[in-house]
Write a protein that binds this DNA or RNA. Structure first.
Lengths: 206, 206, 206, 206
DNA sequence: TATGAATGAGAGTTCATTCAT
DNA sequence: TATGAATGAACTCTCATTCAT
């Protein structure tokens, strides 16, 4: 059983417990980033955190909850970093550009964290052909946020009349692809790529 | 040791042996497509192929080599399907459009095979921090092929003067993203998406 | 160490402490009855009692002592219920009949408590080949009580000259068997069974 | 995966496989008999069999199947020993007597095997309050066999008109109780107990 | 060539127990 | 007295790999 013998999840947590959870999530991020989701066992994560394996089970209901927390935290951090820059953009074209450039900026500073995110998304494939649990769950709000801005831009005449869902998917995929390419080609000029990508997207949207 | 007690890999293979390898690779594709890379054990693959587990170890040096072969074969099949349609395009813009539309067409007919491919890419992250083994290995020639066409188009004045590597990476990522979205949203209109994507790419390249 | 840093067991206990122990024993009974001995972890018991896990370790030297207390308490309760009815019987034959019928009556009202008892007896087999700790310890006085009555009956000519120990063991086993059958066949007519069993035993003893 | 990658259970088995299964079942019996079901881990069983832990998983789908096999085998052996002696009895009263005496005889020779049986029955309590899986499954045919003989005896006027189900349950419980008593009191005279019990049952049935 | 059998490491989880606060 | 936190061992089960036949 976990803390207080109450179900993990919805519950007030002590300061110490939050600290431990954060520590474990952090260790999980590092581990997944380093060895990949498939090889990120609880043993390895515990080892990296310098704690016993049982502590993880004590604080999380299982590996799934831990990985959920990892995803959630990384997403939050990205949003916290990127959203303000999008909001302060003068118009929708500038916002789109800012989106791409700011994410790239975040990538440069948090390579490993993002590798973990990718690793988890990829590694999480349920057995027996059932659809992956998280990708849509997490990605859908992201798409919707992008689409809303695109639609606003279209209404204001800033953008032409394209399919906003396709554009959103393409934008997200292009950014992910930029990251993946950079990860496998560390010498690649990320900033230049981001600028170029911003130009591509801008042209396709006008 | 494998056949003739010589190392797996570089060596002339008998007809029977090639048949067995093909059979196993095929079973591996189906298995990964169905249960995901993480749950595609050699047992399951052997079971699906209707052979004993040991046969796989006999014909392949290990799970890694088997998965390499899977990737290679799927890539070949895609190329075989797509390349002719690109070649017969009247100019580079048409070729780019054909590329996107033809890949989408292939996707529609080979959903599972491609899901296996994705599953393998995702699941294959080596331990100990070594970089993923395969993505670049396989993708590089693809990028180069695309870039060459893009460059030709630029020289002929069909395309404007963008960074061909960024465009190639973006194109590939957009296509992958289209597939991923379609996989998680089976009701999504793949053909319409492809057409829209072709328009986006075309605009960004002119 | 427990309260006052003195060993658990032989020692005067405060009122509060006794209350806590009773509460924990009660929760243990419910838990064993519900999920079986094997799954009745201290966590679950604590959870049901609404207390922290450590409290149990504080009040009892370990799981073993707790289960000992459970057995002891349930036995006491049964005796408290059954003995008066036996005592007020006019003769030994009536007492034997009353024994069976009253126990059945208790069973009907305390199904769960008795299931816990059975669960503990069954689950408690010590490792390393040492003989089970409790069954004889608890059952011996029960047997002796029964035997004494049987012997008295024989002396008074109410019963024939059978082996009292065998009769006592058989009686106890028959009652236990009646309970076990009723537990697995809830629709079984417990009262009718008890009456029939009383008849069987009575005939075998005359 | 198990042998031939086919599901454990219904399937032709090689000689070697049967031997291994028998060896493992035997080791399981010994282990349960010695340390009790609760402490009979696959590790311990494997250790006693002198094999690796994985072998058990290779030959059995899991601990459940192994224990099922143990129960099945012990039951078969008992039946094989006892049934002939019952069949050759001249009438139903003699058959009842033979039943009790022969089972006792078997007990004397197979103390440990039977302790294992008891241990498994007892230890198998499913979680969440669902009823035990096996007891009814196995016991029901036994009851029915006994009842049939009792009924025949009643029809032929050998027995009086008692409830056959209650008598069957009581008989079985008395025999189990005799065994349990003997196990905890090794100096107890098992044969005398059996003879006395036969007398008790016979009297109650006439 | 192919198989069945066996291995042993490692996976996630559960749990009784200990201990500082 | 009571708690939350942590431990470490034990559990069942899965798997890639090896090897004699």
């Amino acid at each position: 059983m976990g803390p207080s013998s109450r179900p993990h999840g919805q519950r007030k947590r002590t300061f110490i417990e939050e600290a431990r959870r954060a520590q474990i999530v952090s260790a999980a991020i590092d581990t997944v980033a380093e060895v990949g989701f498939a090889h990120a066992s609880l043993s390895r994560i515990a080892q990296r955190a310098g704690i016993s394996k049982g502590v993880i089970s004590y604080h999380f209901s299982g590996k799934d909850e831990l990985m959920d927390q990892v995803v959630e935290q990384v997403y939050s951090e990205i949003a916290e970093f990127v959203l303000p820059r999008i909001v302060e953009a003068p118009d929708e074209r500038a916002a789109l550009r800012a989106h791409i450039l700011t994410v790239a900026e975040y990538m440069r500073g948090h390579r490993e964290k993002l590798m973990a995110l990718a690793g988890i998304f990829n590694g999480m494939q349920s057995p027996e052909g059932t659809s992956p649990r998280h990708r849509p769950m997490v990605a859908e709000p992201v798409y919707q946020g992008i689409e809303e801005r695109l639609r606003t831009g279209q209404e204001r005449g800033v953008f032409r009349d394209f399919d906003v869902r396709v554009m959103a998917v393409t934008l997200q995929a292009s950014i992910d692809g930029m990251f993946a390419y950079w990860v496998t080609h560390p010498d690649h000029d990320l900033e230049a790529h981001a600028a170029e990508l911003a130009e591509l997207i801008d042209r396709s949207a006008r």
